[in-house]
Design a protein around this nucleic acid. Structure first.
Lengths: 116, 116, 116, 116
DNA sequence: GTGGTCTAGACCACA
DNA sequence: GTGGTCTAGACCACC
């Protein structure tokens, strides 16, 4: 339950959706947006603070931690995506080379989009 | 054990042995055939449903999901992960080569784990 | 997994967030937004179409069903919220009268906000 | 059976018998004390964790969640549901009285189910 | 020591 | 008949 929420928030921070030191939604806002109980979000924020990903202060809005292990977090997130890609690649019977090639094509696509 | 069963079923669906939208053996039938507990098959079916490979409906027999082009969907899923990996890689300032290398290392890690 | 997504979409339609006959996010958009696999969303949309909540056409964007059992859907959703309220009320040891009073206060609050 | 256990634990926490952030019996201890399987207690603890009542951490002993004012959070959760009920009620064109009546009927339904 | 997972079978709910 | 849930105990992983 709250593990999924933690996962999502961690991803957003890693991906840069939520920049460091930026304010993040209040517990109540998130609860409404995700349509889950306030208690569940509270639990997730508590864990994320333990991990050093976010900081909370009484009364003041929660923020993404100033100098957290962002690099490390991103590295883990990156490896997770690569790992899942490998998993699906295996399901599709792709060879490592084919996968690497697919990665290259994806990179090219991104480049083209940025140019446009 | 249930992982092996999942693998086998995935294979049968991929190969076309079990056609799309076709009924598949009930959990009890399979349990008897494979000489394992009903629960073990149930666990496998549950995972396969999460993956979108099969569909269960309570009183009715389970079926292979009739998603058109399961492979195509998986391909999109794969590209999604690669794309996010590229995004995070960019944030970390990794060059395409470094990312490819990281993918290789991840693949090696997976291989080692399977061997163990 | 996809059950939660179905639940959320049903709620959004019931609540009027997504109006009838309005276009709804594409499978891929939702997959990215919710950070889940494309396959999972596909499965959810499939079920929702079976329920008559949404309609999908090849190539064209999916839409909220024209004249679905919206009334019925809303009724069920309403009762679900009331039921959960009763559940939590019981946990808090509130009497039925106290709960009814709390409902009244909430109604008053809504009214005041609308006036403002 | 595990529902009864959940109920009992909730009661103990609510009453203050088990203080916030205090360690609680291990699943094995409780299993022996209540003469049920470890699994049954595990199931109960799992549900209680989902609700935000307790916290588990793998190798470490489980604790009562140190959420400040669990009651307050529950109250907010309750008001959230009432608010949504009001929203949908408005969409359905229900008068406040009709909504209150519907709440009463829902309460009656719950009561009947408990009796059964 | 702790909690977590896997396999198991009996019983229940739905069709 | 079907799939779904509950209780069970052995074994594993973490601390």
């Amino acid at each position: 339950m709250y593990l999924q929420i933690i996962e999502q928030i961690r991803e957003r921070v890693a991906v840069g959706d939520w920049a460091r030191d930026a304010e993040i939604p209040s517990i109540r806002q998130l609860a409404v947006a995700l349509r889950v109980s306030v208690i569940t979000i509270k639990r997730a924020y508590f864990e994320l603070e333990r991990e050093g990903v976010i900081v909370t202060h009484h009364g003041k809005p929660s923020r993404v931690a100033e100098v957290p292990n962002l690099e490390k977090l991103r590295g883990e997130d990156l490896d997770q995506h690569l790992d899942r890609a490998l998993h699906i690649g295996a399901l599709l019977g792709l060879s490592p080379d084919e996968l690497a090639e697919r990665l290259e094509r994806a990179a090219k696509r991104r480049n083209d989009e940025e140019q446009a």
